[in-house]
Design a protein around this nucleic acid. Structure first.
Lengths: 155, 155
DNA sequence: TTGGCTGCAAATCCTTTGCAGAGGT
DNA sequence: ACCTCTGCAAAGGATTTGCAGCCAA
């Protein structure tokens, strides 16, 4: 886990290097983000921020998220269906298991997969920067709920 | 490669099973789709369809794509940035290597990865339905183009 | 004849942008 | 002071939906 202070200083550094200015709004948004779950939509973030300061506009949240992506504090995720979700970039890389029924997202990481994809990249002469790996299916809970209902196919 | 006739009959079957009706428009769209590249946007598809029949509306293309997804003839892909791309679902599953510079998409499949993700799913009690696995980076061509320009980091 | 299909335009949803004023350095 | 940041509202792009007429079964 990266600490909030660490994130703040990374943001400050990025701001200075790029001739931007710091602002209380931006700090507030970053702070709020760290209090929320690992995958947040711009809208969820906006609501949470407004609970602390109801004068914040949606545009500011989007603009701030863009900056936070630039300095690699957050990453944008476009899962299937609906809006983008944003997550704090952690030192530990992880991929996602997503339940198509209840939308639960489980994070995992698997070294075998990681190594295998490096090989694939090399095979095609690619220089790998990042990747996304998402497994969609039914989680244990939803499987149990379905129980005897055989043949129900989610999509 | 799945043949066009095979796809058509799969569509017909789906249509009958679900109390829908077949239509020339839908057939035209499916046919057109098979003549295009492996990743097509709704807009590209619309243009191509209109070259054959300029009375087709955008809504019909979207509605047809939805149906084609339901009967697993095409899959929707939300790559980073821009609109969704659609691809014919082939018997051979494949994943994607995407160049962040020139946007080239290379398809690959790797059994090690496939097996590894089955294991991950099992570990979490998931029943795996499908997945997406995308590697982003620089392709060989763009790497060469950069040549000496060291330290350029794409994101 | 019935009920699904279609084009059109309007409506949505998510995100970005223009502008005038507030705020940071 | 200068230039960035912000809220607001309007614009934008992609996709969906309502409706009246068209078409297949």
């Amino acid at each position: 886990m990266t600490s909030l202070d660490e994130l703040k200083s990374r943001l400050r550094e990025h701001v200075q290097r790029n001739g931007l200015k710091s602002s209380t709004r931006r700090d507030l948004i970053l702070e709020t983000l760290t209090t929320l779950g690992p995958h947040v939509s711009a809208d969820q973030l906006l609501r949470a921020v407004r609970e602390r300061d109801d004068r914040v506009g949606a545009a500011t949240v989007y603009r701030t998220l863009r900056i936070l992506q630039d300095c690699e504090i957050v990453a944008e995720r476009r899962f299937e269906g609906g809006a983008s979700l944003y997550e704090l970039v952690d030192d530990t890389h992880h991929d996602h298991l997503i339940c198509v029924e209840c939308k639960t997202i489980i994070e995992f990481d698997d070294e075998i997969v990681e190594r295998a994809q490096e090989k694939v990249a090399t095979r095609f002469g690619f220089e790998l920067h990042y990747h996304r790996h998402e497994l969609y299916g039914l989680c244990a809970k939803c499987l149990k709920k379905r129980g005897s209902k055989v043949g129900a196919t989610a999509r």
